[in-house]
């Protein structure tokens, strides 16, 4: 049915005049990546570690289990890459700034695990607004994070400690 609708719409399209700047017609502003960070700009917001959504763990054991700051960032990167390639949830990331996502997710994990980072991203509700994620999507993301942690040889009990910080945020990151 969707295909028929798209096909109908396609057939109904009139050949547009040449030389029309459609971005201008529709008021689309072209987004330009910051040459230094490679990220798209976002609306200004108040930066705070509270945006990370939970209090961090204390102690050295967890950061070590995750391979320190570097290891944590690798796990975040891998989680994002797995999710981007995951047919269950890849649609969610289509128009997403993956450069920024990798950085902020890495910061969030690093902050929550008590590895000494500050979280500079937006709060969970704002960052996930309009994504329309479900709990089923969340489960897929958890599986990808678990895979990334498994590959990094993080002991299972420590994997669950990170999940214990993230799981209570479910209400702020899902919409349906």
């Amino acid at each position: 049915m969707i295909k028929t609708a798209i096909l109908t719409l396609f057939l109904l399209q009139q050949a547009p005049a040449e030389n029309v700047d459609w971005d201008k017609e529709f008021g689309v502003e072209e987004r330009v990546r910051d040459p230094e960070t490679g990220e798209f700009p976002v609306e200004p917001y108040q930066q705070s570690n509270e945006n990370a959504g939970a209090k961090p763990f204390q102690g050295e054991q967890l950061p070590a289990a995750f391979g320190g700051r570097e290891g944590i960032q690798k796990i975040a990167d891998r989680t994002v890459e797995l999710s981007e390639a995951d047919p269950r949830i890849s649609d969610i990331f289509v128009s997403h700034d993956m450069v920024r996502l990798k950085r902020t997710l890495g910061e969030q994990f690093c902050y929550l695990l008590g590895a000494g980072c500050d979280y500079s991203g937006r709060d969970m509700r704002t960052a996930h607004a309009g994504l329309g994620a479900t709990k089923a999507d969340l489960n897929a993301l958890v599986e990808n994070l678990q895979k990334a942690m498994r590959e990094a040889k993080v002991p299972f009990a420590d994997q669950n400690k990170l999940l214990s910080k993230l799981a209570p945020m479910s209400k702020d990151v899902t919409e349906r």
Binding site: I2, A5, I6, L9, F10, Q13, A15, P16, W22
Partner: peptide, 13 residues
């Protein structure tokens, strides 16, 4: 042209 089709396609889907 392609952009519009894509946009309306997205809206419909």
């Amino acid at each position: 042209m392609r952009k519009i089709v894509l946009i309306s396609g997205c809206m419909v889907s």
